[in-house]
Structure formats: structure tokens, C-alpha cells
Design a protein around this nucleic acid. Structure first.
Length: 248
DNA sequence: AGGGGAACCCGTACGC
DNA sequence: TGCGTACGGGTTCCCC
């Protein structure tokens, strides 16, 4: 399930492969980039193709060698002037591909919170958002209106790094905890992008490769295994995992 | 307003 | 073996 680092990897690869004036029938792909968990494809017409992969969506380039298994679930195909085809494939079909004009795109994006890897995302910003919510801190982290791009995996990882219980009411976090959480989110997302994301289940990048961050996870998917920090057994379901000893 | 819950979808895992 | 069913999971929409 692509979160920020996986979506960033998809967008970067896509931009390298087809960004910079690749002609599609009737228009030209100018640039591919990421906002939150969305892959955004800028067209010369000033419209944009906005792809939300959700769980199983992937953008794959067929240069004539894409195997039939990958092509099988293709829902949308963009034929490029150079002969290649950009496929949106989605096994569970919960993802979306939307063509937006500039007004619609601006409206859509304005409802999304700040990018955690932008300099505008400061401890003060996180603190202000956290302080006014009595919801569990993990739920706030996953709220796209609060912070863009963080989902279940990186919410678990960030909270583990910061040593904070995911079920803690957001408003009860101290200034020190908020600062640690901010640093934890930024570092885990940055490191995951460097590793080309976390591959779980169906996620593949634009060339069909898996990400390497899965082997570096500290919490997500590790219930019952020893904490990498203190050795205590991690508790929880596959959804929320924590170390009861060092996340209080 | 803010929070809670259902719907969306289909491959996988599991039970009989 | 083969069929049927429960499950998952982010976002959106609806309702309280």
C-alpha cells in the first residue's frame, strides 16, 4: 500500500521515464511528481492526471516487455508517441485515476495537510495540530488533513522511533515528545525514500521492483518479535504494533 | 464541527 | 478437491 515514500519512488521513476515532454495522444506529459499519496502527472494542456493508487494500484511502463501477468489488471492505458504505453494497473480496483483542470486540482490539494518533508512542516506546526485533538496520536498522524502522506506503516514506525504509545491522546503529548515525533516522522520517511520504499503485498515501483525498507522496519509487521531497542516482545495486531516497554 | 461508521473491491486464506 | 465465506485497508461520504 503506497504511502509517501512509495509514492515518491513511483513519481520519480515515472518522471525519469516519461517526464519532460513525452507526447500522449493529444497532449504532452511535462512532469510527474508526488503530493501526499498521489502521483500527479502534469500535462501541457495544464490539466493533470491525478493517480491515487490506494492499496494495489501501480503505474507501469510497457516498452514491449511488460509481462502478461502485470498487464492483466491494467485498467487505464496511455499510449505515448514513442510507442511505449503507461498502464495503470490495480488488482482490487479501489484506486482512482482522475483528470483535473487547474481549478479542480487546486481545490482538491488545498484540503490536504502539509508535506512532512517540506521545510514548512515544523515542530510548531505539528504541535499546533496535535494540541487541539483528543484523538489517538496514531489516528492524527494518519489524517491526511493533518499531515500528508503518512499511513499505517509510517505512523507505527514514527511512534516507535519517538517512543510514544500510539493510543495516547494527541493533546497529552509534551513539547519534548512532539519534537521527537516530528524528527521521527521526517527521518523514517527520508530513510524509506532512500531505500525506495517498503514493499508489502502488491506494491511495486514503476519498473516492477520492490522497495528495500521492509527489512528495516522496527514496528510494523513485527508483533511478537523482539524490540530492536530494548529486546522486549512487541505487542499488537498487524495493524498497530508497539513496544509496551519503551513506548509509553 | 468533529467524530464514527459504512461502502468501495477482489485476491488470498481458510474452513467444511 | 472444490466451493463458499471472511478479511483487509485508505479515502470518501453520510449521519449524528
Amino acid at each position: 500500500m503506497p504511502e509517501l515514500p512509495e509514492t515518491e519512488t513511483i513519481a520519480r521513476d515515472l518522471d525519469a521515464a516519461i517526464g519532460g515532454a513525452r507526447r500522449v495522444v493529444g497532449t504532452t506529459i511535462v512532469r510527474c511528481w508526488r503530493r501526499a499519496k498521489l502521483v500527479v502527472i502534469d500535462l501541457s494542456s495544464s490539466d493533470r492526471i491525478v493517480v491515487q493508487p490506494r492499496f494495489t494500484g501501480a503505474l507501469l511502463i510497457d516498452d514491449g516487455h511488460l509481462d502478461a501477468a502485470e498487464r492483466r489488471y491494467s485498467a487505464v492505458a496511455f499510449h505515448l508517441a514513442d510507442g511505449r504505453t503507461l498502464h495503470y494497473r490495480d488488482i482490487r480496483r479501489l484506486g482512482t485515476v482522475t483528470l483535473m483542470n487547474p481549478g479542480r486540482f487546486a481545490e482538491y490539494v488545498s484540503a490536504i495537510g502539509p508535506e512532512p518533508l517540506d521545510s514548512a512542516f515544523t515542530v510548531a506546526h505539528l504541535s499546533a495540530r496535535i494540541r487541539r485533538s483528543r484523538q489517538a496520536i496514531k489516528k492524527v498522524l494518519m489524517d491526511q488533513k493533518a499531515i500528508a502522506g503518512v499511513g499505517n506503516i509510517y505512523a507505527n514506525e514514527g511512534l516507535w522511533r519517538a517512543g510514544i504509545d500510539p493510543s495516547r491522546s494527541a493533546a497529552t503529548l509534551t513539547a519534548g515528545e512532539t519534537a521527537r515525533l516530528h524528527d521521527a516522522i521526517v527521518s523514517v520517511l527520508t530513510e524509506s525514500i532512500d531505500a525506495r520504499g517498503t514493499s508489502f503485498r502488491d506494491y511495486r515501483d514503476a519498473s516492477g521492483q520492490r522497495g528495500r525498507f521492509a527489512e528495516r522496519l522496527d514496528a510494523y509487521g513485527r508483533a511478537g518479535e523482539p524490540c530492536h531497542r530494548c529486546g522486549h516482545r512487541l505487542i499488537g495486531t498487524h495493524r498497530t504494533v508497539l513496544c509496551a516497554n519503551c513506548q509509553s
